[in-house]
């Protein structure tokens, strides 16, 4: 039996949209025909190496379990999960802020003064850490998408969400009132694959860093 194929987990969505063009022309370029189809396992230009297209929130689990040997995921997702995996490089792209955002005109001090602050977010861990640092308490409203609607419709007083250009916030009449942290794309690796097959995995990791790190 030959050694199994190496799988690299790539994120769908915002980060994926940024990285696919960056990989074009490299040994890890994704097969253009397969990308147009609905398949989620895409051959790369290197025989024996395939890409898995996964939701960011699922991706660390595939890597930590060793199903995928390498992966690319936002540090915001990593920070929300307690996964045993290696984080080989900060690739720099996909940079955005994790921010507290509220309706225009509502200041941070006014939010602080609320007796019962409600924050909608899909980043509860980072939000709780910030609340602790600030000495605040709040009710967290867990959401998985479209958090911008929450303050508009009264579900929450403010949101904690990723902000890249601020366009979506502006379209909903929201402004950043505090920056909680920063996020960027990270190259992650399965601990087992990296340590038990360094001769196979390290060159691929180096190729990804060369192609993707700005």
């Amino acid at each position: 039996m030959n050694a199994p194929a190496i799988l690299i987990a790539f994120p769908k969505g915002r980060l994926g949209d940024e990285l696919v063009p960056l990989l074009a022309g490299t040994p890890l370029a994704l097969d253009a025909q397969a990308l147009k189809s609905r398949v989620l396992r895409i051959p790369t230009a290197t025989p024996g190496v395939s890409a898995l297209l996964l939701k960011g929130a699922d991706l660390p689990r595939y890597v930590a379990a060793g199903v995928a040997s390498l992966g690319i995921v936002g540090s915001d997702t990593l920070d929300e999960m307690d996964m045993d995996l290696l984080e080989l490089a900060d690739l720099g792209f996909g940079a955005c802020r994790l921010s507290l955002c509220a309706l225009a005109g509502l200041s941070l001090d006014e939010l602080r003064a609320k007796p019962h602050l409600r924050l909608a977010t899909k980043f509860p861990r980072a939000t709780e850490a910030w609340l602790t640092r600030e000495g605040l308490t709040a009710e967290l409203v867990p959401l998985s998408s479209s958090a911008e609607l929450a303050p508009l419709l009264g579900l929450a007083d403010a949101i904690v969400d990723l902000v890249q250009t601020g366009g979506t916030l502006k379209a909903h009449g929201l402004v950043e009132t505090a920056v909680l942290g920063r996020s960027s794309a990270r190259l992650v690796a399965a601990r087992g694959a990296y340590l038990s097959e360094p001769a196979r995995i390290r060159p691929l990791a180096d190729a990804l860093i060369a192609a993707l790190k700005g």
């Binding site: 199994p4 379990a65 399965a190 601990r191 087992g192 340590l195 038990s196 360094p198």
Partner: peptide
């Protein structure tokens, strides 16, 4: 034989040389 300078597993316990045996493709030592 590989030298892993950044082996910190069990750092609160180990005080000196460490050894870890892997098989190619194994997910755990």
């Amino acid at each position: 034989l590989r030298v892993d300078l950044a082996d910190v597993a069990g750092l609160d316990f180990y005080t000196g040389p460490t050894l870890r045996l892997w098989a190619p493709g194994a997910q755990q030592e």
